[in-house]
Amino acid sequence: MLGVDEYAQRKGRIYGTVLVDVETRRPVDLLPDREADTLAAWLAARPEVEIVCRDRAPFFAEGATRGAPQALQVADRWHIWHNLGQAAEKCVYQHRGRLRPSPAPPDEPQKEADPAMSSPWPTGHRFAERTRAKHATIHALLAAGHSKRSVARQPGMGLNTILRFSRATTPEELFTGQWQSRATKLDA
């Protein structure tokens, strides 16, 4: 079983391909780039490869298909968990307005709601802190006179994200779903 992934020779500029024996967890070879042709040529010289464990990068998929058509291609464990975590976080984020807090036990007296606790993600929650930080950064850049397009380029976020965050006066508006107006399959 051969593991295929990328590595950075110079982050953001030069990337290569690392090939790992998945069973022994030892590197087999380093390829100088992330090109499908390079991987295909390497695999074509080694017909004994039966399984290629890779991420979802299209150049790895194409290279493995051309270089080792007999090999079964599978996703590696890290990318499966990473993609599952992202999908779950996105799903919860999209439907957070429909989540209801659990009722308080009847033998405890009702306490007044703390403003920080009124959002679905109170202080200290990873998602909430990241959202609050993004909101503060976007509003600070807009207040400094930057255009929404230039703000979208600086933190590396999309324009739609910048527009959504700029419309929310507080980060809590993003948590409660007050900005979300379109219908979803869960409405029924």
Rank of each mutant, 00 (worst) to 15 (best):
A61P: 00
K185C: 14
P47K: 12
V52F: 10
A40G: 06
L186N: 11
A64G: 03
Q154P: 04
T123E: 13
V20H: 09
A168C: 06
A140L: 11
P106E: 15
F60N: 03
A113S: 13
L19P: 02
A183D: 09
S150C: 09
T161Y: 02
A40F: 04
A88M: 13
R77H: 10
Q110V: 13
P122I: 06
M1C: 04
H146V: 04
P171G: 07
E35V: 02
R126H: 09
H125D: 13
K134L: 03
R153K: 15
H82N: 12
H95I: 01
N160G: 05
E89V: 10
E6W: 05
R10W: 00
L2A: 01
A61R: 11
L159R: 13
Q178A: 11
G3Y: 04
L19C: 07
M1W: 00
D76T: 02
A41V: 08
E173F: 03
V49R: 01
F165T: 02
N83M: 07
E23C: 01
V20L: 12
P115L: 11
A168F: 05
A45Q: 12
V52R: 12
G97E: 02
E173G: 14
V49W: 04
L142A: 15
Q86K: 11
V22M: 03
F60H: 11
R25L: 05
A113R: 14
L99G: 09
P171S: 09
W42A: 06
H82R: 15
T161D: 06
R130F: 13
H139Y: 13
Q154G: 11
V49D: 00
E112A: 14
H135T: 04
V74N: 05
E89K: 13
A71T: 02
P101F: 11
P171M: 05
S166K: 06
Y15K: 00
R56L: 09
Q180C: 10
L142Q: 10
F127S: 08
R66W: 06
L186R: 15
A128Q: 04
A40Q: 07
D37L: 05
R126S: 05
A104F: 00
K148W: 00
